[in-house]
Design a protein around this nucleic acid. Structure first.
Lengths: 315, 315
DNA sequence: GGCATTGCGGCCACTTCCTGACCTGAATTA
DNA sequence: TAATTCAGGTCAGGAAGTGGCCGCAATGCC
């Protein structure tokens, strides 16, 4: 308790919870002399954390933005918020992997009572997979279990439903999680089939680590993403949606600009473009647009809209 | 660098990135003897972080879930993921405040180059406010600036557009952020008007800290949420949507169960219920449901659906 | 411009604890 | 049973942390 490293950590935590701290108060809280506090601050600075100080009346210390990130000291509530938030970040291109990595990190050290809270709250958050039907959504618990197994080189068992509907039990050495397109894939070495395989996470249920660790094998590909791409026979080609809207570009952009690109045609018309695997998404967007539309591409969207129209008219 | 506290921190970081570590490897990485490593591990344990060890062949150390959360050691990518994810967590009831708190914490110590990345990525994430139009969404930058000002007791200036459209410049001592209903409010002491005020964050632009700190005043209410509630003349009552769907409950639940509660009526029909400020949301959901619907409540939804039908028919 | 406040950092003496080496013991697995 | 790996005691030398003191430099108030 009266340790130096412990105190350094506590100082870091204090500096993170409130910006300005008078030296005397910090010294008081840490139960050391002001001189020692100054030395502690120096220590933090030597570790690369930019602690700035202001002299004079009402001066104090503050933690500024630096080159490296200091260890984040968080409390229970904040950890829950973190876990819930990261869940939705796993869908954002470019940071999906990093999200899963931190998520695994947080979940691993989180007390079980907090984990229950997280599970309860996650149920309330709206999944961000707009166009996706339920099958494309990945259970976050599945994601973290597998992420941890990959990270820690632990063997994994799960049930897998192949594209043709055949259900099999698998025993694998997980290698890496790869977000590709709008899906997650697990690249793993199948221990029963003696070869590398791709698994779509949304077709995988009940993953559980066996507890056995393994020495990673070498993947027969440049990297995991490359391996997945190679393994995919045919990518489901997404629809390229192109629609003319009878409304000013500015209006349309304000209403649905977040989901598509809007291009001005003239004062009262614009053209929008979006990409989607599923026709429900563009249909929703066009509904929210609140103006007459003319579908240019694809023809199937027209059928979809007419189907919605028929149903809504009967409502 | 060869410091003890620095090494303790590095050990913590190593234990967070990979689960199992043989003692010899840890000692090697930290450039100390195995004996010293054991002592470092002991130190961590004394600080309350449960480092578990496994003996025997292929044994090692691992960081387990404990009572308290250890400081999270994260890298750049992970920090970006964190910030992006937390942004969406600010919309989840119950953890909104905690989310903003961590967000402020992370943003404050984040190098500016990362902040730019976060801003770029946030633009891509789909806002979770389904039914909400753009005006109810709060700029995350605004949120963090204000959160930091509240936390650090720093005076704040911003422009405010009142409900009647009048624009004024404000100079306040921020007290607390309150998420209520689907909105964020700032409770602050207005320095020009000499009194406590509520500000809706979506009506507030260009917040900037003046740099001047202040000694917090006492709020004339039990807590900030209470004060906001008292100040709100009328809460916008959300629509209670109730619809009969001509499809089996299981089917409907699979398609849109995430957005509403589904109740079985008989084998081929079910009743769904949801709450929304905006009619576009239920309309979208009913579209995705892919079956005939009968609107029970509210009548306005029927009008909305007919409007969509008319437009889609013309498409 | 003077003055109080607050951080900065040098110096010194004292104490603490850190470190590595060596040892024995206990748990675990092949 | 043997090998591996963590646990922890002991010891001696050295490194560091600590508090008290000092003069100095910013800063803001009167």
């Amino acid at each position: 308790m009266a340790n130096t490293s412990s105190r350094t950590l506590r100082l870091l935590s204090l500096l993170q919870t409130h910006r300005y701290w008078p030296g005397t108060e910090l010294a008081d809280r840490l139960e050391v002399s002001v001189r020692t506090l100054r030395r502690d601050v120096d220590r933090l600075r030597e570790l690369g954390y930019p602690v700035e100080a202001q002299r004079g009346v009402d001066g104090g210390y503050q933690l500024a933005a630096g080159a490296a990130l200091p260890p984040l000291v968080i409390d229970d509530e904040e950890a829950v918020a973190l876990a819930v938030g990261l869940h939705s970040a796993t869908r954002v291109d470019g940071i999906a992997e990093a999200s899963v990595r931190v998520l695994a990190k947080v979940v691993q050290v989180m007390p079980t009572r907090l984990r229950r809270q997280v599970d309860a709250l996650r149920a309330m958050t709206v999944p961000a997979t707009w166009g996706g039907s339920a099958e494309t959504a990945v259970d976050p618990a599945v994601l973290t279990v597998i992420a941890l197994a990959c990270r820690d080189d632990e063997r994994l068992r799960f049930a897998y439903t192949a594209a043709d509907g055949a259900r099999t039990d698998r025993h694998v050495e997980p290698h890496r999680l790869v977000p590709l397109g709008r899906r997650w894939y697990l690249v793993a070495y199948d221990l029963d089939r003696h070869g590398w395989r791709n698994f779509r996470l949304d077709r995988l249920t009940g993953p559980a680590v066996t507890g056995a660790r393994f020495r990673p094998r070498e993947l027969p590909a440049a990297d995991a993403a490359e391996f997945v791409r190679r393994g995919l026979k045919e990518m489901p080609r997404p629809y390229q949606v192109e629609v003319l809207v009878d409304a000013p570009a500015a209006t349309v952009r304000e209403r649905i600009g977040r989901w598509c690109t809007v291009e001005e045609v003239d004062a009262g018309h614009c053209r929008i473009h979006m990409t989607s695997d599923d026709l429900a998404w563009p249909a929703m967007a066009l509904g929210v647009a609140g103006a007459d539309v003319h579908v240019l591409e694809p023809p199937e969207l027209r059928t979809e809209l007419h189907a919605w129209a028929a149903r809504f008219r009967r409502a």
